Amino acid sequence: MHQPAPDPGPRVLHVAQPADGGVARVVLDLVRAQLAAGLHVTAACPGGELADGLRQLGADVRTWRASRSPGPGLPGEVRALARLIGEVRPELVHAHSAKAGLAARLAVRGRVPTVFQPHAWSFEAVGGLTATLALRWERWGARWAHRVVCVSEAERRTGLRAAIHAPYAVIPNGIDTHRFSPRPAPAEAAPLVVCVGRLCRQKGQDVLLRAWDDVLATAPRARLVLVGDGPDRAALHQRAHPSVRFTGAVTDPLPWYRAADLVVLPSRWEGMALAPLEALGCGRPVVVTDVDGARESLPPALLHDCLVPPEDPAALAGAVTRLLSDRARCAALGAQGRRHVLAAHDVRHTAARIAAVYRELLGTRPPVPSERREPIHS
């Protein structure tokens, strides 16, 4: 007897720009889970490490040529994305970060269920007129997002304070807790501090370098490694002490987490940074700045030792030197951080909650059969 073919999973299109760093890791983890669950997943991005990783997973990858920031090429980028959406005919679009969120919402305009995930708000990254325009756009564009997914309650509150009225869901970032797991650090006498992140104003490595002289006054043998690359690399090189090493871009930060005595991320703004979660997953203590998502990413026991005000080199240096001088305390905080990540930030929980959002949106607006669906044009 002929058995009918099982119904295919819904067609989901992820749109991402930037295509590296934390955004890329979030998209890769989501797509991996969605492919395993039977969804038909396509991703549109400019290329880079995200496209390579998605192809290795077996996802359908479409090249969408788009700059990292809005500019005069935006209308053409929106038209190209609209054509791509017309070809893929997704039943749901999930746009990641400000640029992709801008282009995707302009291309779709609410005609397909749309999830927008800011990964930190665009108006926090800029100043002056640019910030005003970004805020106005986020308020206007909210009408074309069926759900705005914030990675922390603090990020959602920032949106509400900015009068961005949208249907929100708060789904904390998660990590692969099997991969980011503890291993004994190499036995070295010199303390090693590691900062993982794009070398840019957001991540605050300039603040860390200003604090580093004070750290060396107490721990003269300490070493600092900045893992990553970005537009501020040359300027940071110029002010760095000889004890500071720059790795450039790396394919995998895991060995650096495991080598560290302490991981530091002195960000100026975030939604919820991945690097502290990855470090805690490896059983390493962290020092982070009190920006959106930081308090929610730490267990209560770490808040006193590991949280400092943003753009405060003296407070940052004090926290780093206190922890470097007490390795037993570092080990205890790292173990508590590992337990917290296992309970609250496993990527499988994150993927399940995203899947629940998808089901809700697709359930309230059933997919149109492909033969009746009209392509979207801008």
Rank of each mutant, 00 (worst) to 15 (best):
R239S: 14
A240I: 12
S243K: 09
S243I: 08
R245S: 15
F246I: 10
F246M: 06
T247R: 06
A249H: 14
V250S: 11
V250R: 12
V250G: 06
D252V: 11
P253S: 04
P253I: 02
P253Q: 05
L254S: 08
Y257A: 09
R258V: 09
R258A: 14
A260C: 10
A260E: 11
D261V: 10
D261E: 10
D261G: 14
V263E: 08
V264C: 03
L265D: 01
L265K: 04
P266E: 01
E270A: 12
E270D: 14
E270I: 12
G271L: 02
M272T: 13
M272Q: 15
A275R: 04
A275S: 14
L277P: 08
E278C: 09
A279K: 03
L280M: 15
R284D: 12
V287N: 01
V288M: 02
V288Y: 06
T289V: 09
T289S: 05
V291E: 01
V291T: 03
D292A: 15
D292Q: 13
S297V: 04
L298E: 01
L298N: 00
A301G: 13
L303R: 15
L303H: 15
D305H: 10
D305A: 14
C306E: 02
C306D: 03
E311F: 00
E311C: 07
D312G: 00
D312H: 04
P313I: 04
A315G: 13
V320L: 01
V320C: 00
T321M: 06
T321R: 07
L323E: 00
L324Y: 02
S325D: 15
R329L: 15
C330V: 08
A332S: 14
A332N: 04
L333C: 03
L333Y: 07
G334W: 00
G334F: 00
A335T: 13
Q336N: 12
Q336S: 15
R338E: 10
R339N: 02
R339T: 10
H340Y: 14
L342M: 13
A344F: 03
A344E: 09
H345S: 14
D346T: 11
D346E: 04
V347C: 10
R348L: 13
A351F: 12
I354Q: 05
A355W: 09
A356N: 11
A356T: 14
V357F: 07
E360Y: 01
L361Y: 03
L361I: 07
L361A: 05
L362H: 01
G363R: 08
T364G: 15
R365L: 08
R365D: 11
P366V: 06
P367D: 09
